[in-house]
Nucleic acid binder design. Structure first.
Lengths: 192, 192, 192, 192
DNA sequence: CATGAATGAGGATTCATTCAT
DNA sequence: TATGAATGAATCCTCATTCAT
């Protein structure tokens, strides 16, 4: 136990350090040494947990992506109406992007950059199924526009990433009113 | 003349090579050496045109950003109605992101990554004024929702970046119908 | 133990190599690569022991300067008369400059060149106190001329550097008679 | 004429720039580019006047060395007594080292460093003949100690270099009294 | 004579990774 | 399991030198 826990702690510390440093310096400007130091671990120790630097980022990506969808669907139930269900998920995602913004920023960087293996990217995509199911139901009920899921995502979910970036850059500060506007824009873009 | 043109050609070749290589490998994985080789130039020559690697990317960013807004507002006139004007600009930006996708991908990478100086970023932001003016007019006429420009941009323009990425990743192929859907989603998200 | 000793050995090997190569090629013509090779070490290893090239020379300078004064005052005691004390120290310094001439040449190069940080230079100056004390006593007793210490040093000690250079250049070979002459010249220049 | 003069001016400007930059940065840290810039000349132009960098320093050395001996023997005549003659030359050399200290510093650097070709060094040595003649006469007359010329130079002339360095380093400021002391030390070290 | 643009070779330094302990 | 010392390869950048004009 104790020793297993210690192992997990180290792994977590390494992933946390990776997110932090990659966010601030980018992938290639982040030295394994620095990651090790920030995680209070020897550089060699990293290689006990990860095959190499690429593997470290890949796994970090998958982990954060999982955290993202866990967060997104927390307390969500298919019993909700399409609109309420969407609102619920949207709000959760918005919270994730704006509160857990270090994680969200890391994902944005991975998603707009050639640093992640295609395989790991695929691995990370799987998790949004409940949202796709909701949209399918919405389309069938005539509540959601019969658009490709890519387009629905692009317009109703992804804009939150842009707002997160703006906020992180401190060029824009989101308040509750903005969030309300954002939700309206999202919903209007996909509702029938 | 001849010699000035040759200089300009070299600078352009360097910028083109930078875009290409950074797109495929990321900023830090792109060696000056490789940029030089691709531009048919000695590594040392880069430093006649740019102060250092950072300066090279900064200037590339500014240049591409300028190309982006030039493209966006080509043939645009304020005489158009708000809706027509928006449609015009939106179509141009869509074309840029989907046709000049190398350029667009480069911008996406810079905008979601800490590789660009804040100063250069500010420099690159200036160019969207005509769109902001159009939105101001739209809000006054009651045609556009009275949202923050950040939100209007996030929902009506930025989603195109997501679609561009998806297409570049070959996970999704946009046809004319998709484009029509995308425009509707964009317009619905901001129109009153 | 073993590992600490190995570390010290490496550091020493690096310092030795630095002296050798800087003596023969000058500071800037000496590549870190070459120093590493001569010390049987990887280039990267140098940076485990020294911050950078400048730091390497600075520390080498300080080390050699310390060795110089250790050598100068070996077996010296204040109980000696001023003349005997001076003769003792002078002989030791002469030996150092002519026998440990690699070290002496390195110092000469550093002292006549802008390669050493002012700070390290100050650090290296501290060590001659016993000689200054001896002169102070000599002046008080009326045995040594009441000249500035700079002048006493310039005339009674520093000329040995010139002779060392000449010998190193193989333009002049010092024998015992020369040494006797040199000492007379030194003593005559400062004695009352 | 005019064009020849212009050529000479350029050559002089280059030599002046070399002295200045080598004094402040050392030989290898001094880039041809910088020398060219300081002399208001294109880098390529340097190669019209000098074969390469080594040749540039060699010739600079020879030139400065010539200036040194010209300065040293200005107004000197063999009709002076040994002591007066020595005093005359010594004063001139002292002036050179302390007033024309940029030149003197350059020589010190060359003389304590492996940057000058042996050949050029030999070339530069020739010039002190009148002093050697004076010493020969002094020895014959029993006024000067029958020491090797190397030793005479080391003790009566070379110390001025040390004082010049100290002054340049701003650790010591020489006044007239010091100069008087210095001359006494010099003369006492070699006079019978 | 004079130049400024161009360059290939080389230099200091960093980094992902390994290995002896 | 954990480490810190060690490293070879690679990176950014500079520089002495050349060449077309």
């Amino acid at each position: 136990m104790a020793t297993l826990q210690k192992s997990i702690d180290k792994r977590n510390a390494l992933i946390k350090a990776t997110i932090d440093l990659v966010n601030n310096n980018g992938f290639h400007a982040t030295a394994m040494n620095k990651i090790a130091k920030m995680a209070n671990v020897s550089p060699a120790t990293i290689y006990l947990y990860f095959e190499n630097k690429q593997d470290l980022v890949n796994q970090t990506y998958i982990e954060v992506k999982a955290k993202y969808s866990d967060y997104a669907f927390k307390n969500y139930t298919e019993k909700l109406s399409v609109e309420d269900g969407f609102k619920h998920i949207w709000k959760r995602i918005a919270d994730f992007k704006l509160i857990e913004c270090e994680n969200a920023f890391f994902l944005a960087q991975c998603d707009n950059t050639p640093i992640i293996d295609e395989e790991s990217r695929q691995e990370g995509i799987k998790h949004l199924q409940p949202l796709l199911d909701l949209w399918a139901r919405g389309k069938k009920e005539g509540i959601i526009k019969p658009f490709s899921d890519y387009i629905l995502y692009a317009y109703s979910i992804n804009p939150l990433s842009f707002l997160m970036m703006a906020q992180k850059r401190e060029t824009f500060k989101l308040n509750n009113e903005h969030m309300e506007e954002a939700f309206q824009a999202a919903w209007n873009s996909i509702k029938n």
